[in-house]
Design a protein around this nucleic acid. Structure first.
Lengths: 195, 195
DNA sequence: CTCTGTTGCGAATATACATTCACATGGTTT
DNA sequence: AAACCATGTGAATGTATATTCGCAACAGAG
């Protein structure tokens, strides 16, 4: 429903119709509309976490895991275009500070898991150590986010998948720990390596 | 007003109070609320364009211009936190397709100008030519966008400026046309250079 | 069978908002 | 001074939507 009509289309009447009930009946299952949105956020977080867990099982290489995670992420938001619209909607991170912090925590937890992969890569020596895992995780998010927005406003005309692949290519090359990198940027792992 | 309360806070009553009028008086200046939002979008676009024009005057080096543009962009959204909230709000790119395409055009025009800098850099030989200017412009947008969102949901606790600088560092190094880049990624400018 | 808790329904209520309209005011033109 | 135009006002209207409430159906426990 959110994919089609946005958060505006997510009113109790429409939801009730969708599940074959009458608006007031929804109050038997949720305290109020805010409760519904909270449940939605939990659902979304579980999807994101599921992706992290899945790629952990698919490979032991943390850098490869990130690439797989990126692909899954793209697929997730392509198939559920409502997810970004919910997470970044006014209803959610708008006025009410309580909900805003919920989203903040959601993002931080997800990015925390992403950062974990970077940390592992750094310890394995495959990623430069002059960038913090937290910073890297935010950059990682930046690989898809603008593409997703363009995809949405262009009504699916923009190729998110391709853009994400390209961006990952540039990004992963840039952060890899090669001693023959750039002139003065690639002085990674001087004495700070721990592994 | 949008910075504080989000698009929800942007109702005619509040706007009227802010400018010392009564709600109905606003209809002497705008056809309706949609007209107001359209005017807002125009204002925003003019700000973005102003930044592009400004950095053009500040330097002749297109790559340096992009760095300056990034800084200005960060400053713009830090000082006017409402801008991303307007551009990415439901009211704007939600249901009504007409408005959605307006935002699409706005983004495309802005990114088009960004892409122009990349094109020039490629012609000057300072940027790899195996990535299209359009792709690069989307990546450029990705340098700030997630940081801006984190900054917002964290109530200003996140350091956008720092994150953007770091991301630019990684990104600009990665796209620079150095023959001593990575193993198999940096084979830029084989015979496709025109300048 | 009766009691009780759960779920659904329809109607009523309240609220927030955009929008319209008839009228007032004040400056500018003729 | 009269006519006109732009701008502002207050009241009224309509609509969308969340929420509450009393009542009915119904299933399972005793």
């Amino acid at each position: 429903m959110v994919s089609d009509k946005g958060m505006k289309g997510l009113n109790l009447g429409a939801v009730a119709r969708r599940v074959g009930l009458v608006p007031s009946a929804l109050y038997r299952h949720f305290q109020n509309k805010d409760g519904m949105i909270d449940a939605l956020l939990e659902l979304i977080e579980s999807r994101l976490v599921a992706n992290v867990v899945a790629v952990r099982q698919e490979t032991d290489d943390p850098l490869l895991a990130l690439e797989l995670l990126l692909r899954r992420h793209v697929r997730l938001i392509r198939e559920n275009a409502g997810i970004p619209r919910i997470v970044f909607s006014e209803e959610v991170y708008g006025a009410k500070s309580q909900r805003k912090y919920r989203v903040h925590d959601l993002l931080r937890r997800y990015l925390g898991r992403v950062a974990e992969f970077f940390r592992e890569s750094q310890q394995a020596g495959t990623v430069r150590t002059d960038l913090s895992p937290d910073e890297l995780s935010v950059m990682f998010l930046g690989l898809v986010q603008p593409a997703a927005i363009l995809w949405h406003v262009s009504d699916g005309g923009f190729d998110v998948t391709r853009q994400a692949e390209k961006a990952w290519g540039v990004f992963s090359e840039a952060i890899k720990n090669g001693e023959d990198k750039g002139p003065e940027a690639g002085r990674a792992s001087p004495a700070t390596r721990e592994n």
